[in-house]
C-alpha cells in the first residue's frame, strides 16, 4: 500500500516535471506563435494549448502502454506529414534561435540569396531523411 502511494507520487512528480519542461521548450522555440501568425488565428490560442496538452497525454499513453487501434495504414500518411511538419518547424526554430543563418549570410556576403541557402538546408533534410528511412536503416 505504502509502496503504491510512493510510486504514484514519484510517477506524478516525474510527469509534472517533464510536462512543464516540454511546454517551456515549445514556448521558447515559438512554434505556436509562428503558426498563429501564419494562419491569423490569434483568438484560438487556448485551443492550441489544449491540442498540445492532449497530444502529449495521448502520446504518452500510446507510447508507454501497448494499446493499439485497428485502422487502415493510409491514416498514417497525414500523421507522418503532420509530424514531419512539426519536426521541421522545430529544426527551423532551432536554426533561428542559434542565429546560424544571419551570421553565415553575413560572413559570405549574401543577403538576397538567403532563400537559396535555406532551400539547401530544406532539401538536405528531405533527402537525408528519405535516404535514412529507405536505405540506411537496412544496414
Amino acid at each position: 500500500m505504502i509502496k503504491d502511494i510512493l510510486l504514484i507520487i514519484i510517477g506524478f512528480s516525474g510527469g509534472l516535471a517533464v510536462g512543464s519542461g516540454f511546454v517551456a521548450f515549445l514556448t521558447v522555440l515559438g512554434i505556436i506563435p509562428r503558426l498563429t501568425q501564419l494562419t491569423k488565428t490569434h483568438h484560438f490560442i487556448r485551443g492550441y494549448e489544449w491540442s498540445v496538452i492532449l497530444g502529449a497525454v495521448i502520446g504518452t499513453w500510446g507510447g508507454l502502454r501497448n494499446t493499439h487501434l485497428i485502422m487502415p495504414a493510409l491514416l498514417l500518411i497525414p500523421i507522418g506529414l503532420a509530424s514531419g511538419i512539426f519536426v521541421g518547424m522545430l529544426a527551423a526554430a532551432l536554426t533561428e534561435v542559434l542565429n546560424v543563418l544571419p551570421i553565415l549570410s553575413k560572413r559570405i556576403g549574401i543577403n538576397e540569396q538567403i532563400l537559396v541557402l535555406l532551400m539547401a538546408i530544406v532539401l538536405g533534410k528531405v533527402f537525408g531523411s528519405l535516404f535514412h528511412w529507405s536505405f540506411f536503416v537496412d544496414k
Binding site: 512554434i31 509562428r34 501564419l38 500510446g62 494499446t67 493499439h68 487501434l69 485497428i70 485502422m71 487502415p72 495504414a73 493510409l74 491514416l75 498514417l76 500518411i77 497525414p78 500523421i79 507522418g80 506529414l81 503532420a82 509530424s83 514531419g84 511538419i85 512539426f86 519536426v87 521541421g88 518547424m89 522545430l90 529544426a91 527551423a92 526554430a93 533561428e96 535555406l118 538546408i121 530544406v122 532539401l123 533534410k125 528531405v126 531523411s129 528519405l130 528511412w133 529507405s134 536503416v137 537496412d138
Partner: peptide
C-alpha cells in the same frame, strides 16, 4: 498504434514525414 500490426520499415509513415520536414522549415521561415 494505428494499424495493430508490426512493421519494421513503416515507409508509409516515414516518406510523408520526410517531406513534411522540409515543408515545416519552409512554413516557419
Amino acid at each position: 498504434l494505428i494499424t495493430g500490426t508490426h512493421n519494421d520499415k513503416p515507409l508509409i509513415l516515414q516518406i510523408p514525414y520526410s517531406f513534411g520536414l522540409g515543408l515545416g522549415m519552409i512554413l516557419f521561415f
